[in-house]
Amino acid sequence: MMSGLPVPVLLLLPLVVVVAVAVPSPSRPPVRYCRRCCDHLDPPDSPSSPRSAGLHQAPEVRTFINMTILKGDKGDRGERGTPGKAGAEGPPGTRGPAGHKGPKGQAGTPGDPCKTQNSYFSVGRRKALHSVDYYTALVFDTVFVNPEEHFNMFKGKFYCFVPGVYFFNVNIHTWNFKETYLHLMHNDREQVILYAQPSERSIMQSQSVMLTLALNDEVWVRLYKRERENAIYSDDVDVYITFNGYLVAPST
């Protein structure tokens, strides 16, 4: 007995599965691949190669270690190595500016009075002298003071053994009606002159000078003869002619 309810009807239709297979069209041009100048020289994989079929190789993995993270603490300082050979001497440098003047130093201790340098003499002549040659050295025959024998009595010359400043003095007596012409000599050079014209009266004449002497310098008195007769007066009783000298200040 059939009721009035609808009866579902199942319609079994055949299931058709359509699989789309990509088949290249015969009229489609082949696939071209672009290549850069820096690409590998091997040709690109063709569609029929395993790579194009999905069989790709695994990417290469390279391990990179950051050394800055693994850097340890600073080690101890090593022993000092053997010094190398000295290099060639360089050229001298330019002279630097002058420094500031320093403060005045303290006074030194007093010197030894026994080491004080002295040099002095005083000699005279008792005989008169007439100059017969152009140049005549005045020689003395009487010693007043000559402790170190710096004055040579045979040559009539003082020799400097202590360099420094010296004072010299010469005194003479002129002769009546005769010319008196003398030079005080330093080595071979005239320093000062002592001159008196011929006169009826004889007079005393004097000349003095200070000279700076070096070691072995000579100081002496020389008569200079011109057209007139050159002479100095003296006698055996009194001394009219004297020559004196002494050290004022030694050289530093």
Rank of each mutant, 00 (worst) to 15 (best):
F121N: 03
V132S: 14
L211C: 03
A196E: 09
N66L: 09
C114W: 04
S25M: 14
S3P: 09
K157F: 02
A249S: 15
P103F: 07
D236R: 13
H40F: 07
G90I: 07
T116M: 15
G245A: 01
C34H: 09
I172M: 13
V132Q: 14
I65H: 12
P110N: 08
V18R: 15
A53Q: 15
Y195L: 06
K157S: 06
L215S: 09
V192S: 01
N171L: 08
I241D: 01
L138R: 02
R36M: 10
P8L: 08
N230T: 11
L70G: 03
G99M: 10
D76E: 12
D112G: 07
G102N: 04
P83R: 13
G84S: 06
K178M: 14
W175G: 04
G78V: 01
P92Q: 03
S208N: 05
H186F: 05
P250D: 01
E229M: 13
T252G: 12
M153K: 06
R36T: 08
V123I: 13
G111Y: 06
N176T: 09
P163C: 03
R201T: 08
E60T: 11
K178F: 11
K115S: 15
S206K: 06
E79H: 14
I172P: 00
G124H: 05
V18S: 14
S202M: 11
P24V: 07
M185P: 04
F243V: 00
E218D: 02
S3G: 15
T94Q: 15
R35P: 00
E79K: 13
K178P: 03
V192N: 01
P6Y: 04
Y224A: 05
